[in-house]
Design a protein around this nucleic acid. Structure first.
Length: 283
DNA sequence: ATGTGTTCCTGTCCGC
DNA sequence: TGCGGACAGGAACACA
């Protein structure tokens, strides 16, 4: 579910109530998500001050004053909601507990941070802050798509041996980290590249269009507070609204939105996932 | 090394 | 209303 823009939206919502504040109480309602939760997680979080809330790819990282870092991944259906914020930035009252509220953090300042994940594809872990980048889930991630290390020369080199369709290659987090099914489809549309095209068969010139297309669609989505399909919410419970700007994702059978294009958006399945594209303007 | 299919889990939607 | 099947924003894992 949440891709980079949604995770960044959550981070921006959580940072004002978590950074600098102390976790007064940590309630852990089940022993596992995708994997077992770390040993003694509740005790290791209780009384700890959150120094910084960072994002790496689709992971949230909270650096604590115990020199440990809490890693959170939202999987497909994970949500984090804030309530009870005394400064009025979020709902003042705590809502009734919901099914699948797996972890609840009460901050000393009054805010409550609730992690809810029906499908439990999400994950949490705790590690020494100094070893965060070496964590197995983070160590092999490719560059951030919005960072300086992601550029035309890098991408040309990274995919030059890849014979898979570019759609599958851009979903590979080792190539570039943070894209998911929606934003790969949308970026390929903006760049005019077919999701079916073999990665190594894309000219450098067209890769030169793909890189800014990826950056732009992510920037646009972050500015819109992410995309809300089914269950994504910003930390304050509001819906993101980027889904209204989708050109192809979920638009099977509808008219291509590019000016002057008479094409119809198609859906195909590639390595088990839906791809949406306009066959008339993506080559 | 690279490519592909399966799997984890719950919920929703659509057709009958 | 109920039931079965398809599908869902991820990504580790097993195996060709």
């Amino acid at each position: 579910m949440p891709e980079l823009p949604e995770v960044e939206t959550v981070r921006r919502g959580l940072a004002p109530v978590m950074e600098g504040d102390v976790i007064e109480r940590a309630q852990v309602n089940r022993p596992d998500l995708r994997w077992p939760l770390p040993e003694g997680m509740a005790a290791r979080l209780t009384g700890r001050r959150v120094l910084v809330l960072r994002r790496r790819s689709k992971y949230l990282l909270a650096d604590l004053d115990s020199a440990e870092t809490l890693l959170v991944h939202l999987g497909m259906s994970g949500r984090i909601l804030v309530s009870g914020d005394p400064l009025g930035r979020f709902a003042h009252d705590h809502p009734a507990p919901q099914k699948h509220d797996h972890v609840v953090l009460d901050m000393a300042g009054g805010a409550r941070v609730t992690f809810n994940d029906p499908r439990r594809f999400g994950a949490m872990d705790l590690m020494p802050t100094a070893e965060a980048e070496a964590h197995p889930l983070l160590a092999r991630l490719g560059p951030e798509p919005l960072g300086n290390a992601f550029h035309e020369g890098y991408l040309v080199d990274a995919i030059k041996s890849r014979t898979s369709p570019v759609k599958a290659v851009l979903l590979d987090q080792r190539i570039v980290s943070g894209l998911g099914n929606i934003y790969v489809c949308e970026a390929l549309f903006r760049a005019g590249v077919s999701p079916r095209r073999r990665a190594r068969r894309i000219s450098a010139r067209r890769i030169g269009r793909l890189v800014p297309a990826i950056r732009e669609v992510l920037h646009d989505a972050i500015a819109a507070g992410g995309s809300s399909l089914r269950d994504f919410r910003q930390a304050d419970g509001e819906l993101g609204y980027f889904q209204a700007s989708f050109d192809v994702y979920g638009r099977e059978g509808l008219a291509c939105r590019r000016d002057g294009c008479a094409g119809t958006v198609r859906r195909i399945v590639q390595s088990g996932r839906s791809s949406f594209y306009c066959p008339a303007c993506q080559r």
